[in-house]
Design a binder for these strands. Structure first.
Lengths: 199, 199
DNA sequence: TCAATTCTTGAACGCCGTTCAATCAATAGC
DNA sequence: GCTATTGATTGAACGGCGTTCAAGAATTGA
């Protein structure tokens, strides 16, 4: 019965992702342990390698979920105010991004802590979700400057996303700075309003 | 003779930092191995722990050097053009930052990959060098808007630094994007000129 | 029911950072 | 010069990690 095994595997897969997600959420991605995972999932250590290529592969699966939730959060942030001016929509999205990172600090950090030595290719969903996120940002930017070329919009999108990401990243880095959240929101306001008025 | 041991220790310390630095430069901070280090330095593994608290401690020592070189690079970038308009000086500094990261990608990345589980405090030089870097950025920003409060300048400094950092960080992340360097320079131009014209 | 096949298991492997009893070297007292 | 004492150095050993794979269990088709 290939059906049966396939189903059991799929269930184990989901269960492992659930457990790993909870673990990362609580103690960070560096705290993931194959043995602990197996014990909590009630399976053998080797079983993990039946459904994932390796531990980074499991991490990537968790990141897939996180990425989807992050994308939804950014989208939702503007959904009810689709009629707002472009700048305001950009600010709403950026603050949605910030809010998600603040509410899920460890899961959010885990997105950028995947083992890069893993020779596995970047999953297709990664690139897909990222360009989708970029597309959402590009909209308001095009409205702000309808004469800009597509190439120029792509550049600005990337610059803007990277900037907001940098503000959130360093702001959450308690060890360096420990910036209060309202201050980070002020930075985002300042950044995006400058962006808008500069063109 | 306490003098003698002290000197030998200091020499071993420097030698270990040299070797670790070369190793990180070539293969990244994740490739540091206590045993390999000891072999190359011609000492016992245990000797490493006579001059450093642990391996993250050695990493931190390498980062100290890197940070100093980075700071010098940013300072040098504007040194010969101290009379240029504030915006241009900001752009020069940001491009100095970018250039350092491009020329020393692995060492630059290592600055942000220190083990945070290490219960040791953030070294004083870290905070000192960082606020020094911030002070250099704050200068042109104050010139741009002499009426801004100190608090406001601090906010803008942090926002600007974080933004440039974000652009460099994501730009160098080959696995996500792989942005050509001239494009990253365009982003920095765009970002900083917007900043300037927005106030 | 039984052989064939497929899937699962967990002890074992190799590698890691770190420790600490044993060893070695250097000083001081006689 | 010799030896007791002190302090520094060493590297085998420890515990823990991700990963593997021979052996066993389970499922299949005849």
């Amino acid at each position: 019965m290939a059906r049966d095994t396939e189903k059991r595997r799929a269930e184990l897969r989901e269960r492992l992702i659930d457990i790993a997600e909870a673990q990362i959420q609580e103690h960070g991605s560096a705290s993931l342990r194959a043995r602990a995972l197996a014990e909590e999932a009630g399976c053998a250590v080797g079983a993990i390698y039946n459904v994932f290529t390796d531990m980074p592969g499991l991490q990537l699966a968790v990141n897939g979920r996180t990425f989807a939730r992050l994308g939804a959060r950014v989208t939702d942030a503007v959904a009810e105010r689709a009629d707002a001016p472009p700048v305001e929509r950009l600010i709403l999205m950026a603050k949605g991004y910030l809010a998600f990172a603040v509410e899920n600090p460890k899961l959010w950090r885990a997105l950028f802590e995947v083992e890069m030595t893993s020779d596995s290719e970047v999953p297709e969903w990664y690139m897909r979700d990222l360009s989708q996120l970029f597309a959402i940002i590009a909209g308001p930017l095009s409205e702000l400057d309808p004469n800009a070329t597509e190439d120029e919009i792509e550049l600005r999108t990337r610059a803007l996303f990277s900037s907001v990401h940098g503000i959130v990243l360093l702001g959450l880095e308690r060890r360096i700075s420990g910036v209060p959240i309202p201050r980070m929101e002020s930075m985002i306001d300042y950044l995006l309003r400058s962006f808008a008025s500069g063109n």
